[in-house]
């Protein structure tokens, strides 16, 4: 039993697996392209994927608590066109639009959470329905038009620089630090893991399960909205088809990053690594001139691999556990 005190190499390796995979990928890609390790390329990849990482930080909260949300992509679609219209058609001031967009993101996630509670369903089932509602609303509101002509101040969100560093990277870093502190240091962060670890035991431990779920919905909604604003600001346009699809990249990345599909496990740093793995792969596939649809096939395969690996690990752990227990009983008897 005593050797459990010192962490084994295998454990260290396993808990940092996403970063290891990322490192291997980087090395492989640096062979194919001369300028992969250039500062400019790395900053570029980080900059382009900031919005994905921010969305992933919100979505990983949901996944750590043991749920799965399929509507995120269409939530982004909604937030995108609504903010676009508020900025252009109504010409509202930028800070107010940011505030309203965040409010909209929170509202859509809270609606999901309340439906889960009221109808006693899983989030997966509810969002199969609401994703269509959000899609319909988005196209109705935008009238399938492309919205452009954002004010210059808004462009800073996705294209601005502070000194030599792109603003999206700075914002992502700040949000990462805040979320990490939230998850590891606050009691609410613990409740997220508690819910993912065992929902019934959480209820019996006196945790306000609905309250925690609403809090998660609120945080996720805000992150999804921020992510969308950053994206449309970088693109310079908003339209209903922007956003959908992101949810699958994000869910795959979060799984690759070590969050368990059953919830309760995972760290935010792993999530960032998981998203970057997806980003570099997609970058590489683009360089290899693979079509968008071929990329879907690869992403889907990776998602299946990640889920399969997760379940495989769980089964292996259970086997090891029962073997250990049997061993203990045998020695106890002797």
């Amino acid at each position: 039993m005593n050797k459990l005190k010192t962490p084994r190499w295998g454990d260290i390796l396993q808990s940092n697996m996403p970063w290891l995979i990322l490192a291997v990928l980087c090395v492989v890609f640096s062979f194919f392209t001369d300028h992969f390790f250039s500062l400019r390329n790395i900053v570029n990849i980080l900059n382009q994927n900031s919005y994905v990482i921010i969305a992933a930080m919100g979505i990983s909260l949901i996944m750590m608590s043991g749920s799965l949300d399929l509507s995120t992509g269409y939530q982004m679609s909604m937030v995108g066109v609504v903010s676009g219209l508020l900025l252009t058609r109504l010409a509202l001031p930028v800070p107010l639009v940011i505030f309203l967009a965040i409010l909209l993101g929170i509202a859509m996630n809270m609606a999901n959470a309340l439906l889960v509670h009221r109808m006693n369903l899983t989030l997966l089932m509810v969002t199969v329905g609401t994703m269509n509602i959000y899609q319909g609303l988005s196209y109705t509101i935008s009238d399938s038009m492309v919205i452009s002509g954002f004010p210059a101040a808004f462009k800073f969100l996705g294209q601005g620089y502070i000194g030599p560093v792109p603003f999206p990277i700075i914002l992502t870093a700040i949000l990462f630090v805040i979320m990490n502190i939230f998850l590891t240091r606050t009691y609410m962060g613990r409740y997220v893991y508690a819910l993912g670890g065992n929902a019934e035991a959480s209820r019996l431990a006196g945790i306000n399960v609905l309250g925690v779920k609403l809090m998660i919905a609120g945080i996720t909604g805000a992150f999804v909205a921020l992510s969308t604003l950053m994206l449309i600001s970088r693109l310079g346009t908003a339209q209903s088809s922007v956003g959908p699809g992101t949810e699958f990249t994000v869910i795959t990345g979060v799984l690759v990053g070590g969050v368990s599909i059953r919830g309760g496990e995972g760290r935010l740093s792993g999530v960032v690594a998981g998203i970057l793995i997806m980003a570099i792969l997609s970058n590489g596939m683009q360089m290899a001139n693979m079509g968008v649809y071929a990329q879907f096939i690869v992403k889907g395969a990776i998602m299946l691999l990640a889920i399969g690996f997760d379940v495989f690990q769980m089964k292996r752990r259970q086997l090891a556990q029962s073997a250990r227990r049997r061993e203990k009983e045998r020695t106890a008897k002797e």
């Binding site: 613990r190 893991y193 670890g197 065992n198 019934e200 035991a201 431990a205 006196g206």
Partner: peptide, 20 residues
């Protein structure tokens, strides 16, 4: 299924009801 959080540590379990 109801009493403990099997995947978490002893300390985590002892404190979970007293976190506030």
């Amino acid at each position: 299924d109801e009493g403990g959080f099997m995947d978490y540590s002893i300390l985590w379990n002892i404190s979970v009801m007293s976190l506030r």
